[in-house]
Design a protein around this nucleic acid. Sequence first.
DNA 1: GCGACCTGCTAAAACCATTTAGCACTAACT
DNA 2: AGTTAGTGCTAAATGGTTTTAGCAGGTCGC
Lengths: 340, 340
Amino acid sequence: MPGKRVTLADVARRAGLSTTAASMILNGRPDTRLSREAHDRVIAAAAELDYRPNVAARGLRTDRTNTIGFVSDVVATTRFASGLIKGALEEAHASGHVLLVLETEGDPRRESEAIEAVLDRQVDGIVFATMRARDLFIPPLRQRVPVVLLNATNESYADSVLPDEHTGGRRAVDLLVDAGFGDGILLLGHNAVKEEGLFRSTTVARRIAGIRERMNEHGLQFIDEESIWLWEPEHGYTGMKRMLKKHGRSITAVLALNDRLAFGASQAMAEAGISIPADISVVSFDNDEIASYMRPGLTTVALPHEEMGRVAVRMMLDPATSGEQLVDMPVVQRESIRER
Amino acid sequence: MPGKRVTLADVARRAGLSTTAASMILNGRPDTRLSREAHDRVIAAAAELDYRPNVAARGLRTDRTNTIGFVSDVVATTRFASGLIKGALEEAHASGHVLLVLETEGDPRRESEAIEAVLDRQVDGIVFATMRARDLFIPPLRQRVPVVLLNATNESYADSVLPDEHTGGRRAVDLLVDAGFGDGILLLGHNAVKEEGLFRSTTVARRIAGIRERMNEHGLQFIDEESIWLWEPEHGYTGMKRMLKKHGRSITAVLALNDRLAFGASQAMAEAGISIPADISVVSFDNDEIASYMRPGLTTVALPHEEMGRVAVRMMLDPATSGEQLVDMPVVQRESIRER
DNA sequence: GCGACCTGCTAAAACCATTTAGCACTAACT
DNA sequence: AGTTAGTGCTAAATGGTTTTAGCAGGTCGC
């Protein structure tokens, strides 16, 4: 690690040419009329000196830094949604970009700060990500940069990436119906009557809509719907317990609105001596880590976080794609549904 | 979001002073002799124009960008270790810095690329993080920047942040001993005889050493040690199943080397009709998400990922602290240990 | 023999800040 | 009166790149 950086001037000097020539050659400008010979000399000199252009200096001139701002509420921070960042990192890497990651905890002041911070660093664009898909407040930007919303929506910005929850919801229903279930399916997490008019995040609303639509198409009704506001295991546990007390063995299958609820429900079933899938089949959403830890494994409609992250960055870099991109939610087949 | 950036020259012009004066004033240089009046005018102009210095331009001159490179194998990527990044982000934010996050998947070529990429962007320093603490290979750096290893070690770099596994190991033993256990404790995950000479990561080795040391001090022996190479739930399940068959009810407590093993073990126990903590007490390590999902909750010695991330960035910014920083592993008390 | 055009290259400006060196002027001291 | 010291400020260099404008010399056409 010797002292000074190697600069373009060093390369030019070594090649016996001007920095202009060196710059043009190294950037592969097509219209230039520099000789073959000059090309060779510059390339050689750059290689010998192990020259790396200074991104800051270049950015100053060109306004492009190959750096993307990734501003999120609690994405990196949260085990759950870290796939978003993983996908974004991958895609950024693939196109020679780098991610400046900031987290705001959803605090509007920190959000403004974060935006300033990334704009100060001349990012080529900003991805705003949220852990739970929602309408995101975005303070006015003092500069015009491409913006993509990841797992979020905002009426001033059209470009967003969301999971295709509607189709996902339909798929979950089909998993049960295809396995022969019809009566006795319990919906765990949401009750249409009780939660009438209450706000659920954009995507969850679509998930539920897809479920109901497909149930209707099959001419099916849930045996019951248990409203659960927080979707953590303990709430699934208590909710399921209540339902078991109420309906006993007439419950044949559980459609849980996420894996953590399903996990909690499975604990309640285990306590009641009910086994999955022999007695009750279970299907759910997210493909959270817990789904693979369960025994038997939980069949679930996956939240395609990584792919979403990739799509967001791709969209950010390609001006052609725009609008709302829906990413497919694939079924992850495990052993929690019994064929009837 | 109007067209052009506001530059220092704009501010200076508006204040009727030179850019030199504006720069000095805005940077609060102490030795300057500019009038009170000039100060006020510049400050006012900057505020009115909403001036933000261009970090790239400044960095070009000062070599400081208030940006830190966070280069990791699979930290952001992995649900498990994302606390490391969270802590680092927090601490960076607290000191007005920003994190450039790159992931290498542990691939040496990508690692070199990542280093080049962050150096190209003139970072003020680099944090190298790994998901599982290990000796990390670091390619030679072409420039002299501060380097801190997070959850990793490397013989050329002294500054590193690690969990205090030795003490953590001792604590796990004490949790059981204090609750009245002595005979019948099973060590799940490692067998001294079988794994003799095999490599376990640096920190896991210390964890195990701490456990053994404390057992010896108490004059205790494990009833058995089950060697398990991969520490996922399924391995805990099969391992525990084997042990139950071998020792039956003479196992009184399980000391599992991580929470996922413990979770797997709990599944085996549930199948055998053994309940935690009534029949067998369990203690473990990591404070993985799964530990709080279990029912009853799993008492565990936490991996202090967030604090480690914070310490790493603090260390990076403060030349005074150096060497190997051990971060305390706190006990997270839940309900998996019965008082005897 | 003269303008037009091509070829191969470079000087200098621009990007936006920080920093060094120093100017012009007043006040104080010998 | 002449030197020194202090005050309040600025011109210009600097950092490393890209880009615009253009120079010098040759060839071609007529």
